[in-house]
């Protein structure tokens, strides 16, 4: 009984703090639960009201833009910096300095960018004024706010992937790259034709982790805009929070959470299906 005894604390906590709240939450999607009120079973009403709610479409669209563009941007930065780090001339000090954003709590990056962006008195506005430019209120403009908020989110996302891709690049046989160079491949071709296929599986894992990270993002959005103006920066995570603690409609909030779960599962299943040839599931052994 040694094994089960050792695993017991994990199982107990997993049931109490993982399975139980999730099942409770899924149950609440079928009720009209509110903060501090009685709840009744109302069937699928929460789901139908979400679907008929015009802002929900906006939120789903924002989530899609946010995660896809964010993941692409983070991957691009991660790969570019990893390639720089993997140069023969490399210096380990840069690697340490470039993972500092990973160690920074997300809320600190959000607060710093909130201050940088502040109109009139913020840091960027101050310099804009110095050069006689009016600095736009980035976070108050519906078509700009999402991208402005995405910047600190990507900032806090890229370093972890950079470490992974860097480690993978160091595993690429330099003779292959050298052979490609002698055969006349440009630096870009050396990357696209030799390095990228070899580190592809790691890049895919990084893409999955970046995606999950951005999909579950809350702190950056809530600190900078609380989802506004309007719903222009509202993604599913912040929308669930908004419904639960601003509108106090717990039933609808957990329904948003359940939709997140379904989208996440669908995405992970599709991802594992697409990646099934390169490695077995998430076990990630190269």
């Amino acid at each position: 009984m040694f094994g089960p005894a050792m695993a017991m604390p994990t199982v107990v906590i997993m049931v109490l703090l993982g399975a139980y709240p999730v099942l409770q939450g899924i149950y609440e999607t079928f009720t009209n639960a509110s903060l501090g009120g009685k709840s009744h079973f109302i069937g699928l009403s929460n789901y139908s009201s979400l679907l008929s709610d015009g802002s929900f479409g906006t939120v789903v669209w924002n989530t899609l833009l946010w995660t896809v563009v964010g993941t692409a941007a983070a991957l691009l930065v991660s790969t570019a910096l990893a390639l720089l780090l993997a140069q023969p001339r490399r210096n380990a000090a840069f690697q340490l300095l470039w993972i500092v954003p990973w160690a920074m709590p997300q809320m600190t990056l959000a607060i710093i960018f909130l201050w940088l962006y502040t109109p009139l008195v913020g840091f960027l506005a101050g310099w804009a004024q110095h050069f006689g430019i009016v600095f736009p209120a980035l976070l108050a403009q519906p078509h700009l706010a999402l991208w402005a908020v995405l910047v600190p989110a990507v900032w806090s996302t890229y370093s972890f992937g950079m470490l992974f891709i860097h480690a993978a690049l160091l595993g690429v046989d330099p003779q292959l790259v050298e052979a490609a160079r002698i055969d006349g491949c440009s630096v870009f071709q050396q990357f696209r034709l030799v390095k990228l296929p070899l580190i592809g599986s790691v890049v895919r894992v990084v893409a999955l982790l970046d995606f999950l990270w951005l999909f579950n993002q809350f702190a950056v959005i809530w600190i900078m805009t609380e989802g506004g103006p309007g719903n222009s920066t509202q993604i599913l995570g912040s929308y669930a929070y908004y419904e639960a603690f601003m509108v106090r409609n717990v039933g609808l909030a957990t329904t948003v959470g359940a939709v997140m779960l379904m989208l996440l599962l669908a995405f992970v299943v599709v991802f594992l299906f697409l990646a099934r040839k390169t490695y077995g599931g998430l076990g990630v052994s190269r």
Binding site: L17, P21, Q24, G25, E28, G237, A244, V250, A253
Partner: peptide, 14 residues
């Protein structure tokens, strides 16, 4: 990897 919202909101009620 779970959406933290789906854990946090029921946990808050409990």
């Amino acid at each position: 990897m779970f959406p933290p919202m789906l854990i946090m909101i029921p946990l808050y009620l409990e």
